[in-house]
Amino acid sequence: MNIVVDLNRCQGYAQCAFLAPQVFEMHGEEALMYLPVPPEDQLERVRRAAAACPVQAILVGEEAGADVR
């Protein structure tokens, strides 16, 4: 599972950083930095973070083109 955050939409509310701190982190006061490929054992937390994001900016999904490699 991979993630991408629409950072145009993200308003730095930091809910995700609270729910999955190993994957999402505030860099400075407002810039969100994240791991596009979260560790397996974090997926449950990532899903919860995606659901909690107030602007629904986090997309979680199968890596594109995984089947062509």
Binding site: V37, L59, V60, G61, E63, A66
Partner: peptide, 13 residues
């Protein structure tokens, strides 16, 4: 240096 360059694949919708 926080994310390897290969770990940037886009997730599918």
């Amino acid at each position: 240096g926080r994310v390897p360059a290969e770990d940037t694949g886009l997730p599918l919708r």
